[in-house]
């Protein structure tokens, strides 16, 4: 078991290297450069070139890549932003934490809304608790997150004036953006939970338990739920990836200074250090979450645990 975990954590290293390489490659083939974007019009080409030279931007991309990786590993130095000339890591960290808060709040909301409703819908299949949420979930899963965001902005800020429309001053500031990005995944979770529950319910061992006279409530809670929720947990973990992307949109609409909007903003400036540092942090978070989900999964389901403790296929 531990070998598995260690292996996955070690895999972070090639991930980081790979991600850095991909980004440098992509930045290399896209047009634009920091000098041009920052200095503005009317500045002579020599000045722009000199500016880029000073930043080290004009070096061949492999050289930049190797230098960056060396600095990262040996000095824990993620470079200086081409735009603000501040240390990239210190610039990103607070914004990263904000995005994480938003994304996790979103995951939490999507789970707490979708899963219980899904369980209820499966248990009360074809009755009101099933049909109405199902219809709503269908509709909501098909609405783009930014449309939800716009509508909420309009209703809660413009019309009712109960929530702030920008910034991050208090918990109130996070509710709307988190809800906006959480609702489509919540709908997915609802449908997925319901179908997973239904599948579990139809398993033979459930029939056996019922036949043996075990009370229905116990059947549900002890047997069905445990097996139904496992794939749901993976699903929720995976949705973190989508949520981080959704966070970008929410950040833009609600003026939340998160890492998503930072990366998007800096792409125009080709601010490689910041973009890479931000992406690496996101990648690490993503990998760790997947690892936790997989471990939790294995921990709970003995069949899967066996697969990991045995020799890997």
């Amino acid at each position: 078991m531990y070998k598995f975990v260690i292996k996955r954590i070690l895999f972070l290293i090639p991930t980081i290297l790979g991600v850095t390489l991909i980004i440098y490659a992509v930045m290399n083939i896209t047009p634009g450069n920091p000098g041009q974007a920052i200095l503005g019009t009317g500045v002579s080409q020599e000045d722009i070139d000199a500016y880029n030279e000073k930043l080290g931007y004009n070096d061949p991309f492999l050289q930049k890549y190797v230098r960056y990786v060396k600095n990262m590993i040996f000095d824990q130095d993620f470079g200086i932003s081409y735009v603000t000339k501040q240390d990239a890591f210190t610039e990103i960290l607070p914004r990263y934490l904000i995005t994480l808060k938003l994304a996790f709040l979103g995951v939490f909301l999507s789970a707490i809304i979708g899963i219980p409703l899904g369980i209820k819908a499966a248990v009360e299949q074809y009755k009101l608790w099933d049909t109405i949420p199902s219809i709503i979930a269908f509709l909501l899963a098909a609405v783009p997150a930014f449309v939800l965001g716009l509508v909420m902005l309009f209703v809660f800020c413009g019309w009712l004036n109960v929530l702030p429309s920008y910034g991050i001053g208090s918990f109130k500031h996070y509710i709307m953006p988190a809800l906006a990005i959480a609702i489509p995944p919540a709908a997915q979770n609802f449908r997925f939970t319901k179908s997973s529950m239904l599948e579990s319910i139809r398993q033979d061992y459930v029939r056996t338990a019922r036949a043996k006279g075990v009370p229905e409530k116990q059947v549900i809670w002890k047997h069905v739920l445990k097996n139904a929720l496992l794939p749901v947990i993976t699903q929720v973990g995976l949705s973190l990836g989508t949520l981080i992307c959704g966070a970008v949109v929410a950040e833009e609409m609600f003026s939340i200074p998160g890492v998503g909007s930072l990366i998007v903003e800096r792409i125009n400036y080709k601010d490689e250090p910041v973009i890479i540092a931000g992406t690496i942090l996101i990648a690490i978070c993503f990998t760790l979450v997947m690892l936790i989900v997989d471990v939790a999964y294995a921990y709970v389901d003995p069949r899967i645990r066996a697969k990991y403790t045995k020799s890997r296929k």
Partner: peptide
């Protein structure tokens, strides 16, 4: 590849 946000 999947670690890089698609938006990028």
């Amino acid at each position: 590849f999947m670690s890089v946000p698609d938006i990028l």
